[in-house]
Each structure stands twice: as C-alpha cells, then as structure tokens.
C-alpha cells in the first residue's frame, strides 16, 4: 500500500463514523449512557456498600461542577489552539504536493507517539516556569490536533474537481475561496474531527491535570483543579462518594454535550456534504 493510499484509508476510518439520526435514537444516546452508569453505581453500592468508606468531607455538587467547568475550559482552549494550527496546515498540505510529501508522513509519525512521551518537554517548558495550565493545555492540544488535521485534510481531498473548476471559472479565489468553498466543504469533516478531538481530550484529562506525578519531588499542590485531578485524588484518598459523583457528573455532561452540540452539528453539517 502506498503512503497516499494509507492516508486515504486513515481518513475513511475517521469519516465512516455513524451517529444516531432520529430524535428517538438521539434520546437513547442521551439517556442510555447515564442510565448504565447509574445502574453500575447502584450495583457497586449494594455489593460493596459496607466496605466503602464515607469521606468525612461533605460532597458539594458545586465543587464538582466547578471542576467540570474548569476542565471543559482547558479542553476549549486546547481545541481552539488546535483549530488555529490545523487550518493553515491543512490548507498547505492540500495546495502543495511538496508540503504534503514532507508533512503527512511526519504527522503520521508524530501522532503515533504517545502524548506522555512529550512530558520531558512539557515539564521543561511549562512547569519549570510555573505555567501549570499551559502544560495541561499543551498536552490536550497534542492529543486533539491530529484528529482535526487528518479530518480536515481528508475533507479537502473529497472536494470534487468540477466544484474546484466551477470556483475558478466564477473567479472565486483567495479568501473568497476559503470562506465560500473550502470552509463549508470541510465543515462535515471538521465536525467529525472535532468530536473525535474532544473524545481524545477527555481521554487524557487525568494525565493533563495530575501534573505532580511527573514532576520530580512533586506534590498534589501542583495538580490543576478539574475533574481529572478530582478523580485521581478522590481515588487516592479513598473518597469513593466523591469519585462516583464526579464520574456521574462527567458522563452526564459529556452526554448533554453530545445531545445538544455534537448531534445537532452533525445533522446541520449533513447538507454540506457532496453527493
């Protein structure tokens, strides 16, 4: 298999995600996941209830929600930065065969390196100067970027030649081309890539927020307040109630985000697709 066909295969893998389309299906996706989590929690409590220690500190829902908001803000900033870096890279790759030959294999290698491998750099660059949020956002940025880059490049490649020719004939060039053709054409792929990027971001949130584990002689004071660190610290201190409440809140939040943002965006982006 050639390098290019490998990439195309990669894009197809990213693009072939199906998602619930009817309201009923979407309601299922919203209700079913939190329901399964709740049932699991109840089963855990009933089975191991006596052995679960209750933490002396009262659990405040506001405390967990604040952590959730802070985590989401970090994800948001990392996503925005990924987008800012991704769009020019994707345009460069799509418009220059030379850039594509050099950059795509490079990206393929970098994206296959685990995020944790970048920790020495992160510690040197950010933690050394006390930029803890910068370190977390950089980890999330690295986790999110490649989903966006490969999705957007894939989206640009499926613009039919006739459509590009039509744009040229009707003198749609430069910024007009970017805003009137390129961005709408890649929108469905950008939405799918963003969904995957956020999923990847949620995956590495614990790594991103619990910084003290990776700092020589680090303490929990160096952790960032958010759901990632809350989960780890609740587990470490044996506060199972806090752990469970955090998990339930996080799953419910991701479920709501999926229902009110991603599903709607995916539906909206459907009509931007070429047949």
């Amino acid at each position: 298999m050639t390098q290019t066909s490998k990439h195309i295969h990669h894009f197809h893998r990213h693009m072939s995600i199906s998602y619930p389309v009817s309201v009923r299906q979407r309601l299922y996706s919203l209700v079913l996941i939190p329901l399964v989590v709740l049932v699991l929690v109840l089963v855990i409590f009933r089975t191991f209830g006596s052995s679960l220690q209750s933490h002396p500190v009262q659990i405040s829902l506001g405390y967990v929600l604040t952590a959730l908001v802070l985590t989401f803000l970090r994800l948001g900033v990392a996503y925005f930065l990924s987008l800012v870096v991704c769009v020019p890279l994707a345009i460069l790759i799509s418009h220059s065969a030379r850039a594509e030959r050099i950059l795509l294999p490079m990206f393929d290698i970098i994206q296959s390196v685990p995020v944790l491998a970048f920790f020495p750099v992160i510690i040197l660059l950010f933690v050394h100067y006390g930029l803890y949020n910068g370190a977390a956002i950089f980890i999330l940025f690295l986790a999110m970027l490649w989903n966006l880059v490969f999705s957007v490049v894939g989206g640009m490649r499926v613009i039919p030649q006739d459509v590009k020719s039509a744009a040229q004939i009707f003198h749609i060039s430069g910024w007009q081309y970017v805003s009137r053709v390129l961005i709408p054409a890649v929108l469905p792929y950008l939405v799918t890539g963003s969904l995957l990027a956020f999923a990847q971001g949620w995956n590495v949130i614990i790594v991103a927020e619990v910084l003290h584990t990776y700092i020589p002689g680090g303490t929990m004071a160096q952790d960032l307040f958010g759901v990632g660190s809350l989960l780890v610290n609740a587990s470490a201190s044996g506060n199972q109630q806090l752990f469970i409440v955090t998990i339930v809140c996080m799953v419910a939040f991701i479920g709501l985000l999926n229902f009110f943002v991603w599903q709607k965006l995916l539906r909206y982006a459907e009509r931007f697709k070429f047949e």
Binding site: P160, D162, V163, S165, A166, R180, V181, P184, A185, L187, R271, F272, K273, F274, E275
Partner: peptide
Amino acid sequence: VFQTGALFPW
C-alpha cells in the same frame, strides 16, 4: 455547465 452540476451543496 458541468457534467455533475458542480453545485455548492450548502
């Protein structure tokens, strides 16, 4: 006018 129409679907 193109064989495929080449319309902008959005």
